[in-house]
Amino acid sequence: MLNILFEDKHIIICIKPIGVLSQPGQGEGMDMITLLQEYRKNKKESDYIGLLHRLDRNVGGVMVFAKSELATKKLSVAIMERNFTKEYMAVIHGRPSEESGILKDLMFKDSSKNKSFVVNRMRKGVKEASLEYRTIETIGVAEGEFSLIRVKLHTGRTHQIRVQFASRKLPLVGDGKYGGKDNQCDAALWSYCLAFVHPLTKALVDIKQLPPVQYPFHLFSEELIKEEVKKEVNKEEVNKDVMLEH
C-alpha cells in the first residue's frame, strides 16, 4: 500500500492515499503513521515516525515523515519559519476573478464542528491565513465551469485551501462540507509538491507527484498539468542560510 518516493536514513517521503488518515486518533481506519511503523519494523529498524504536517482524510498526495527525533525537530523549525514549500493542485467550481493572486483572510476553527470559517475581525482563536494561487485551466461542464488551480500555502490552517476558496464562492469540487455540489468525488485537492533543504544532508529536496488520473483531474489537459509539475522550485524560496543555523 505504501508508495515511497524518497527515503534515506533520516526521512521518508511518500503518497498518502485519499481516504487514509495522516495519524492515529483522527477516526477509524488505516493511518500513515501505523503503516510506516509497520514498514520500518519489517526492515528491522526502529519504528520511530515523526509527524511533520497533516493532510485531511479526503485529501491525498505527497507527505514527508521523519525517522529520528533530530530530523523531526529540524524540519519542524523549517516549517515554522516557512522555509518549507508546500504546493497543491485543486479543482474548484467557477473561475477566479483574477488568473493569479494572493488570498489573505482571518480564519477561526470551530473544534466542536471540525470546521473553519473566514471571519472579519481578530479575536481569540482567530489566525491569519495566506496562500497564493494560479489558474492552470478553466473548462465548461454541465454545472457551469471548473477551474484547475495551483496553490502554494504561506500558512497551514485547518482546511485552509477549502475555506478560503469557498468563502469566495469558489468551493472545491466534491467538498460538500464547504459548499461543493458535486458528489462524484471527495474534495478535489492534491498535495503535489514538497520542497525543502534536507535537515541533515543540506541537499535541496524537491519531490513532485501528478494528481491521480481520475475525476475531476482527468478532465483537464494532461500536458498542462505535466508542465506545472516540471517547473522548478525557486531555490531562493527555500532559505538554506536560515536552516543551517539550526
Rank of each mutant, 00 (worst) to 15 (best):
T158Q: 11
M107S: 00
K41I: 15
Y48T: 07
I49D: 03
E28V: 09
N114T: 02
L35V: 06
T34I: 05
S191V: 09
G176W: 08
E128N: 12
D206R: 05
L55F: 04
K104E: 15
L75F: 09
I136M: 03
G156H: 06
P24N: 01
F6I: 01
S130E: 15
S22W: 03
K86P: 00
L170C: 00
E98Q: 13
L36H: 01
H154F: 15
F220P: 03
D110K: 10
K231L: 10
F217Y: 09
L55C: 10
M107Y: 02
Y48C: 06
M1A: 15
L35S: 03
Q26T: 11
E143F: 10
I207Y: 09
D186I: 07
E7Q: 15
L36S: 02
G94C: 03
S111R: 11
G61D: 02
V62Y: 08
I33T: 03
N114M: 12
T201S: 15
L170H: 03
G101T: 10
V64S: 08
L170T: 01
V197S: 06
H10P: 00
V91H: 04
V126Q: 00
F65P: 00
E228G: 01
S68Y: 11
R95C: 09
L36M: 13
S116W: 00
F196Y: 11
H53F: 10
V62K: 06
V163I: 11
L204H: 08
M32G: 02
A66V: 02
Q214L: 14
K240S: 11
H159S: 03
T158I: 11
I4V: 15
Y178E: 05
V62D: 02
M30E: 15
M32Q: 00
S68M: 09
V64G: 09
E81C: 08
I207M: 05
Q26R: 11
G174E: 06
C185L: 05
V238W: 04
L36R: 01
L172Q: 07
I149F: 04
P171M: 12
M63P: 03
L210D: 06
V205M: 15
V126A: 04
I12Y: 01
R121W: 08
Q209L: 13
V173H: 00
N42P: 08
R40D: 06
I207W: 04
K127M: 14
L51F: 05
T72E: 04
P211E: 02
L200F: 12
T158N: 12
E143M: 12
F217K: 01
A66I: 00
S46P: 02
G125Q: 07
G180H: 06
I139A: 09
E45N: 11
L224P: 00
T72C: 10
E98C: 07
S76G: 14
F146W: 09
V20M: 14
V242F: 12
I33K: 04
S97D: 14
L55A: 09
K152N: 04
K44H: 11
N239F: 06
L200Y: 12
K44W: 02
I4F: 06
G174K: 02
L219G: 05
R134T: 12
Y48N: 03
D47T: 13
H198D: 03
L148V: 09
Q184A: 07
G94K: 04
R57D: 00
K109Q: 04
N234Q: 13
H218G: 04
W190M: 05
R82C: 07
E245R: 14
E223I: 12
K226D: 01
